[in-house]
Amino acid sequence: MAERVVVTGGSGRLGPWVIREFLEHGYEVVNIDTRHPQEPLCPTVIADLAQLGDAVDVLEGADALVHLAAIPAAGLRPNEFTFRNNVLSTYNVLAAASLLGMSKAVITSSESSYGLVFALHPFSPQYVPVDEDHPQLPQDSYGLSKVVNEATADMFHRRSGMQVVSFRLGNVIAPDMYENFPSFIHNPRERERILWSYIDTRDAAVAYRLAVEADGLGSMRLNIAADDTSMDIPSRELMAVSYPDVRDFRAPLEGYETLLDNRRAKQVLGWQPVHRWRDHVNV
């Protein structure tokens, strides 16, 4: 078992939950970020991962890398900056991990890599639930950065044999964010671009730990999403309203099932999301 895990971006929304998960299972954890967290759970090192030297320095002595650090969405910074930051920092941490002989890394990709989320010219998924084999067709620098990062993971696996798992996360929801759900759960147009997906930070954190503990995965992409959508509307009705042209349904969809297919993560990691928005919201 890896003993020392470096988590980049541990001061963000998801990071503290990932850090807690590793700490609670006996790991030594170091957080790498550009700012200190609100709650200090473990040592934090301020570093610029756009600099390869910084990446090598902060990863020295670690057994595994969990890379969360990124500009987290399109439109927050200029397009070129978003692309350069996300691609260069991911290249650098994987290059550093490879140079240091590390065998395990998990990087953070996104459902945005499929292209629907920030598309300038909206389009429909080719089929649902969208699985990891669905074409990635981004029209934005953020989604493109995630596609490039997954290819970077492939390259470093070929180069060094390092296992790199790329998580295509659904919309990340911390527990305090469930209070916002009543404002949109009856309006399918509000979250149609993300296929109404979500993933609780606690369930995502478990997936990161399981990916570090797994062996023999090579370079693999995995969707990480809750079992249900974020809506109080059956999934087939959501599709009929927002994507009526889609005819290829690859699951029964008899209730509120996720439209971002999470079955592969369950199969290869033994992972099971347990937190549902309905446990926190009266409907």
Rank of each mutant, 00 (worst) to 15 (best):
W196L: 12
G255H: 13
R168V: 06
E237M: 09
R209W: 04
D140L: 08
T8H: 01
T201E: 12
V274C: 15
R247Y: 09
T34A: 10
R247F: 10
S109L: 05
R247D: 13
G270I: 09
I107M: 05
D48I: 00
V147G: 09
Q267M: 14
M102R: 08
L94Q: 03
F249S: 11
D245A: 14
G270K: 10
T34N: 11
V18L: 01
E190R: 10
A205H: 00
G26L: 06
G170H: 11
L238S: 11
E21G: 11
R159Y: 14
E39P: 08
D154A: 03
S113K: 06
G9A: 08
A211V: 09
A211Y: 02
Y208W: 13
Y243A: 05
E213V: 09
Y127P: 00
A105G: 06
A214G: 06
A50M: 12
L49D: 00
N31Q: 05
L59R: 00
L76T: 03
I199L: 11
D215F: 09
H280Y: 12
N86L: 02
Q51T: 01
R158C: 12
V6T: 03
G10S: 09
Q126L: 14
V164Q: 00
P72D: 05
M239A: 07
N223E: 08
L100W: 04
R263H: 02
D261Y: 11
P37L: 00
A74Q: 12
H275K: 14
P135C: 05
V147N: 09
S98Y: 04
T34Q: 13
T152V: 09
R35E: 04
S235V: 03
R35P: 02
P244L: 06
F167L: 08
R77F: 13
T90D: 07
L269Y: 04
A55H: 00
D228I: 05
P122N: 00
G270F: 09
A73P: 05
A225D: 12
V18Y: 03
R264V: 10
A97D: 04
M1Q: 12
L253I: 03
A96V: 02
G170F: 08
F184E: 08
T90F: 02
N92M: 05
M177I: 07
